[in-house]
Design a protein around this nucleic acid. Structure first.
Length: 427
RNA sequence: GGAAGAGUGGCAGAGCUGGUUUAAUGCACCGGUCUUGAAAACCGACGUACCUUAACGGGUACCGGGGGUUCGAAUCCCUCCUCUUCCGCCA
């Protein structure tokens, strides 16, 4: 959420930059005009209301004094005046609630400003190829098959059992498949720890305030599993509980950078389409992910974003997977993000790129909702910047590993992963 | 799930028979005096948000959240949340 102060001071910039997200200039302008008119009214209401309250506060004290002095009549007179003014404040306050609610609704519908480097565009096809794949794309031998066949052949994942136990999109890992999953989690966590991230095991359910803090509510409500009886949401990513550690927190400048990591299962309702794009592990309701989160000083957040990019890149290199990096265009950029890089690995058997990581800088957008601030130089309160990235999302990594490394003898495990799996090949 | 008690500023802790409390006091933090330096001592400043002002400053709200009673609420009432202790259930 952008602050009203920022919006007031940067109207032209907003109108211009939001066009990158395909928002029409005149519509944005109209919305901002409405918003500012509401804010004007809010200020006016506040000024009037405060003044009346001030008068009443003074009167209340005086009444107390008059009673002590036995001047009942004077006191009664004052009381009548107070009652009259109180009606006025009641009206003002009621109106103020309405105004603030309307402002809130408008503000919640205003997405983050894209970073200047974000290209215009509508869909994922307009994303900029930031870093092409450095290695030639693997070509598999005749008879190579997609991972949904491989997991059956080697008894690694049982999708049918998942359906039996829960429903579609809840894969059941077993044997070496389960071991591979756990190996990847351990490797990613160790790598994050080596890079200075503190490991967190967070709750997997969050309350409404947390879901709101990172921006899942209200815009992505339908994506989350919700437990009505307890008013809790299953996390769609570790970003939510981990970033919310710092909700309503005032940091000191020297606390930066805050680097956190955590492995959690992620739950997504994904009301999306069905078909071959979503077969197997390509899109599931529950998957494992190691997330990295950073909270940074605004001056340093883009350097930090690049560091995070390098960290994810290192993981993919260790796994010897062919990858490329995309800079998301305005149309594909998440509502809360200022700049996002997606990592995709090439699935040789499916002959397509699979998204395995998304690394974003939210600047102050989340921090404003979270009330995550710090005292900078001259002791002034400022909003911090928040960033996060997947490092990495497991399901699709497993899919690519299985497909790309299939040979006649079996599936070869990349060397860096072997100390975690305890085996070098799946036969 | 049941019963009892409690939630006050960074921490500790008073106020809780409603009105000099504009929340005492101590500690911590910050600035200063003293000192070669430090400690001690002393002095001062010490929350967040919003409104207002060119600025100095002034005002309003906030004592777990929300609502109510009253001229006036940290203090009384209702409700929700959290914590502690005891009981029940349980990996």
């Amino acid at each position: 959420m952008l602050t009203i102060k920022f919006i007031r001071e940067n109207q032209d910039l907003l109108v211009e930059r939001l066009q990158v997200r395909n928002l029409k200039a005149d519509e944005t302008k109209e919305m901002l005009t409405n918003l500012i008119a509401l804010d004007d009214e809010r200020r006016d209401n506040q000024t009037q209301n405060d003044q009346i309250l001030s008068e009443n506060n003074k009167a209340a004290k005086l009444i107390g004094q008059l009673y002590k002095e036995g001047k009942r009549d004077e006191a009664e007179q004052l009381k009548a005046q107070v009652a009259e003014r109180k009606e006025k404040t009641n009206v003002l306050q009621e109106r103020q609630h309405v105004v603030q609610q309307e402002m809130e609704n408008l503000l919640l519908n205003l997405p983050n400003i894209p970073h200047p480097s974000v290209p215009a565009g509508n869909t994922d096809e307009d994303n900029e190829l930031y870093k092409p794949c450095a290695t030639p794309l693997p070509v598999l031998a005749e008879g190579a098959v997609p991972h949904w066949d491989l997991v059956q052949k080697y008894n690694l994942i049982d999708f049918e059992l998942g359906v039996k136990i829960t429903g579609a999109g809840f894969p059941l890992f077993r044997g070496k498949g389960a071991r591979l999953e756990r190996a990847l989690i351990n490797m990613f966590l160790d790598e994050a720890a080596d890079a200075g991230f503190e490991e967190i095991v967070p709750p997997l359910m969050v309350n409404e305030a947390s879901a709101r803090g990172t921006g899942q509510l209200p815009d992505k409500e339908g994506q989350m599993y919700y437990m009505e009886k307890d008013d809790l949401y299953l996390i769609p990513t570790a970003e939510v509980p981990i970033t919310n550690i710092y909700r309503d927190v005032i940091l000191d400048e020297k606390d930066f950078p805050i680097k956190l990591t955590g492995y959690t299962p992620c739950f997504r309702r994904e009301a999306g389409a069905h078909g071959k794009d979503v077969r197997g592990l390509n899109r599931v309701h529950q998957f494992d992910k190691v997330e990295i989160v950073q909270i940074e000083h605004p001056d340093k957040s883009y350097d930090t974003l690049m560091e995070m990019l390098a960290h994810v890149e290192g993981l993919l290199q260790k796994l010897e997977l062919p990858y490329r990096i995309l800079r998301l265009c305005g149309g594909d950029l998440g509502f809360t993000s200022a700049l996002t890089f997606d990592f995709e690995v090439y699935s040789a058997a499916q002959k397509r790129w699979l998204e395995v990581s998304s690394v974003s800088n939210f600047e102050t957008f989340q921090a404003n909702r979270l009330k995550l601030r710090f005292r900078g130089e001259n002791k002034k309160m400022q909003l911090a910047h928040t960033l996060n990235g997947s490092a990495l999302a497991l399901a699709r990594i497993v899919a690519a590993l299985l497909e790309n490394n299939q040979t006649e003898e079996g599936i070869k495990i990349p060397e860096a992963l072997q100390k975690y799996t305890g085996f070098a090949i799946i036969k």
